[in-house]
Simulated assay, not measured.
Amino acid sequence: MQVISKKVVRTTMESLDRIDRDILALLQAEGRLTGAEVGRRVGLSQPAASARIQRLEKNGVITGYRAVIDPVALGLNIHAIIRLRTTHAHLPRALDLASRTPEVTSILRVTGEDCLIFDIHCPQAERLEHIVDALARYGPVTTSLVLRAHPPKPLANSAATTS
Rank of each mutant, 00 (worst) to 15 (best):
S45H: 04
A48K: 06
D22S: 14
I23F: 02
S99W: 08
I78F: 09
E129S: 15
D70L: 06
H121N: 11
L145Q: 14
V141R: 00
H79E: 13
T12K: 07
L74K: 13
R32P: 02
V72I: 08
L91C: 10
P123S: 05
L26Q: 10
T142E: 13
V104W: 12
I131D: 00
R52L: 12
A149Y: 03
R10M: 10
G43W: 02
R137C: 11
D133H: 15
L91D: 10
K153Q: 10
R109Q: 13
H150Q: 07
A89R: 09
R85I: 09
I62F: 09
D133T: 05
D119H: 13
V132H: 08
L76T: 07
V132E: 15
T12P: 01
I19A: 11
V146C: 06
T87Q: 07
F118R: 06
G39W: 00
L76Y: 15
P71M: 09
I131T: 10
L155H: 12
R100N: 05
A29W: 01
G31S: 13
S15R: 03
N77P: 03
D114V: 12
V61Q: 00
G31C: 06
T105H: 13
T111Y: 04
L27R: 13
R55Q: 14
R127E: 05
L44N: 10
Q124C: 08
L155C: 09
I78K: 07
D119M: 11
R21M: 11
T143K: 04
A89Y: 03
R93Q: 05
S144C: 04
A36T: 06
L116P: 02
K58H: 04
I107D: 08
D114Q: 11
R52A: 01
P102L: 11
R41Q: 15
A73Y: 05
E103N: 04
G60P: 11
L108F: 09
A49W: 06
H150E: 06
D119S: 14
H90W: 01
I19P: 00
A98W: 01
K153I: 09
A51T: 09
R10Y: 08
D22Y: 04
I107S: 03
L24G: 10
T34C: 11
A149L: 08
I120L: 15
R109Y: 05
A80K: 04
L108T: 08
G43K: 12
T143H: 05
P92H: 08
L26T: 03
P47T: 05
I69N: 07
R137E: 13
E129W: 03
R66I: 01
